[in-house]
Amino acid sequence: MAIITNFLLCSFVVGIAQTTVILEADMPFLKMAVQYPAELQCCYTASENSVKVRWIKQYGNKTLSTHSVELLQHVTINIGNFSGKTCGTLTFNPVKLNDTGFYQCSLKGNDFKRLSHGTYLQVYQPMKKTLNLSESTKNRILTAEGVLLLLCVLMPSVTLLCKSKRLHELEKKKAKKEEENIYQGLNLDDCSSAYDRIERSQAHGQYQDVGNIKEEEEQIQLEKP
């Protein structure tokens, strides 16, 4: 009975020891331009100090393969303690295009082995400038664009004003031409003779009283009614 009790106690202690490693949350994604430094971290808390940290890299090809990250001229690995937790730092200085991949920490102790959540590092090549323009040239280009924009706004308005003025002049010419057409078929001589007759009839009346001018009968020729 004592042997069974000791076995259960040992199993319980071992189970507690295996659950004392707590992994912190990792940065899931990091995007960095080439030729810039990049830094990946995996932090954890453990009850023992004999935990070995090893960085591994996983390739995203058809057959997933992992290998240990090698220390190169631009790759360094450091282990440090910060506020009661241990952090493994993988530094690329500078980062290169072939450093793109998924990185994880492999934690190995006396009786456990765990992997961190991991961080995917994406390295990209920034676009280069096709035209290397100075600031003064850029300012001149912006000024020219502003002038062109102003002309694009003003030209339609000026065109509409010119068209409306031209239409107004055409309407005036049309009205003047119609007014001239009214008097085009009239004969001025006939109009003047008719006017004289109307004036003479209004001055002397339609008939002349012959009873009052007997004395001047011989000198004046009577008008016929």
Rank of each mutant, 00 (worst) to 15 (best):
I4M: 02
I4D: 11
I4V: 04
T5D: 12
T5R: 11
T5W: 03
N6I: 04
L8D: 02
C10M: 15
S11R: 01
V13N: 05
Q18Y: 04
T19S: 10
I22V: 12
D26A: 06
F29A: 05
M32S: 05
V34W: 01
Q35H: 07
Q35A: 05
Y36Q: 15
A38H: 00
L40D: 00
Q41V: 08
Q41R: 15
Q41A: 11
Q41F: 01
C43R: 00
A46N: 14
S47W: 12
E48H: 13
N49Q: 12
S50W: 11
V53C: 15
V53L: 12
Y59C: 02
T66I: 14
H67A: 14
V69P: 00
E70W: 03
L71G: 02
L72R: 06
Q73P: 01
T76P: 02
T76H: 05
I77R: 04
G80Y: 11
G80N: 10
F82W: 06
S83W: 03
K85L: 09
T86L: 04
C87N: 01
C87Y: 03
C87E: 01
F92S: 01
F92L: 00
F92N: 00
P94F: 02
L97T: 08
D99C: 02
D99G: 00
T100Q: 06
G101P: 02
F102I: 05
Y103S: 02
C105Y: 01
L107M: 09
D111A: 07
F112V: 02
R114M: 12
H117A: 13
T119V: 00
Q125T: 07
P126M: 01
K128D: 05
K129S: 09
T130N: 08
T130R: 14
N132C: 00
K138C: 05
N139K: 15
N139A: 13
R140N: 09
I141R: 04
L142T: 10
T143S: 15
T143C: 01
E145F: 09
L149R: 13
L150R: 07
L151N: 03
V153K: 08
P156M: 04
P156N: 05
V158Q: 07
T159K: 07
T159D: 01
K163E: 10
K163V: 12
K165R: 13
K165N: 09
K165G: 12
H168Y: 09
E169M: 03
E171L: 15
K174R: 13
A175N: 13
K176A: 15
E178I: 10
E178M: 12
E179M: 14
E180N: 11
E180K: 13
N181I: 06
G185V: 11
L186E: 03
N187T: 09
L188G: 04
D189R: 08
D189T: 14
D190L: 13
D190T: 13
D190I: 08
S192D: 05
S192Q: 07
D196M: 08
R197D: 13
I198M: 15
I198C: 14
I198H: 10
I198E: 10
I198P: 02
E199M: 08
R200D: 10
R200I: 06
A203C: 09
Y207I: 14
Y207H: 13
N212D: 06
K214Y: 05
E217V: 05
E218V: 09
E218M: 03
Q219L: 12
I220H: 08
Q221E: 08
L222S: 12
K224D: 12
P225D: 15
P225N: 11
